[in-house]
Amino acid sequence: MTDYRAQLTGVFTALVTPFKGDAVDYEAFDALVERQLAAGIAGLVPVGTTGEAATLSDDEAAEVIARTVKLAAGRCVVMAGAGANDTRTAVAKAIRAEAAGADMLLVVTPYYNKPSQAGLIAHYQAIAAATSLPIVLYSVPGRCGVEIAPETCKAILDTCPNVVAIKEAGGSVDRVTKLRLACGDRLVIHSGDDALTVPFLSAGAVGVTSVVANYAPQAMVDLVRAWQAGDTARALVLHEQLSELTAAMFIEANPGPVKAALAHAGFSSPDMRLPMVAMSDANRSALVQTLGRFQASFQEIR
């Protein structure tokens, strides 16, 4: 039996999709992935929210996933985004991601539609029936307007053997406990909020799907590894050292700030596709100042 808890333990990077103008910058993307792998990241998540999946064409999404799989070459788990607010489209995305070589699927709740909990169950059942890949549920009510109830997670697990985990991004540590009480160890839990990594780990999560890791993969890996090793004091130091950076990465809607941070470091451009636009000058200035303080302080504690 596959140990999904072990596979999902650690830091998974919610990869940005670099653009050069309106075209995907595959050279910058490849370099981004290699930097993640060098830092010892446990997993890569292409074409998710941070990867601007909503504005990628089907061909672009398939290429980004395939490149991630090829570059990872078995060195980490590839969890491909495959969500949509139309179940038929989500099924098609799941099938394409499997064909592209993904190891797992990350499937967000339908956005805009605001389905009932019964609708969520039916949605995930349809997707699970269409693929052999393990599926990670993604509950992010701030973006989608609907939350997967703990009892709904249990119902999905009871009827979908290949649903194995949840990326929980509702901003509440209490949700971890409620999910564990409803589902037990059958449901592996990932933090979907960088700022809540340590609190989530303390409540029973096994890792984090991280936006910050695009910019600071080694710091995020060190934090989670310290916690896993029982060095809670070091984990707390790293948590505090990352706190200002984490807050700055969400000063505007993701992925604007993290793309600006990567651009400031010379890794890729800050370009996004409409309706996302560049950060305001004031917020970008504040972000750059935070990046400078982070670099100085992180070097001191390495």
Rank of each mutant, 00 (worst) to 15 (best):
K167M: 13
L105W: 02
L137K: 06
D25L: 03
A265G: 06
L238H: 00
M276Y: 13
H264G: 01
Y124E: 03
L187H: 11
V277Y: 11
A53C: 09
N214Q: 06
C183P: 09
A126M: 04
N214W: 06
E244D: 15
E151L: 14
A248S: 11
S139R: 05
R67Q: 12
M249H: 12
A53N: 10
Q125T: 11
I148N: 11
S172F: 05
F200H: 11
G204I: 07
A126K: 10
V206P: 11
R186F: 06
D194R: 03
L56N: 07
L137D: 09
T17Q: 12
P150R: 07
A282Q: 13
M1E: 14
T13Q: 02
A248E: 04
G101K: 03
S132P: 00
M279P: 07
A229G: 15
D222M: 04
S297F: 01
A216P: 01
V33F: 10
N162K: 09
G10F: 03
A286T: 12
G48W: 03
T68M: 07
G51F: 03
Y26W: 08
G101H: 08
A94S: 15
E151T: 12
N214T: 06
A265E: 13
T177A: 00
I156P: 00
A265N: 13
D185R: 14
Y112E: 10
Y112H: 14
G142T: 10
R67S: 07
A278Q: 15
D281K: 14
G192E: 10
P257T: 04
V64I: 15
R234H: 10
A97K: 00
S202I: 09
G74V: 04
S202V: 03
P270C: 03
G43C: 08
L181V: 09
R143Y: 13
V45C: 15
T50V: 14
L187I: 10
Q289A: 14
G10R: 02
G204Y: 02
A265P: 02
T50I: 08
R67D: 14
A203H: 08
G81D: 09
L201Q: 05
V16F: 14
S269V: 00
L187E: 13
M79H: 03
A278W: 05
V206K: 11
V140M: 11
V221Y: 06
S243A: 15
V69M: 05
G145K: 08
G171S: 11
V224K: 02
A128D: 01
A80L: 07
L105T: 07
R293N: 12
A213F: 02
D174H: 09
A247I: 04
P150W: 08
A282F: 07
E98I: 08
S268H: 15
A129L: 02
V108L: 06
L106W: 05
S243G: 05
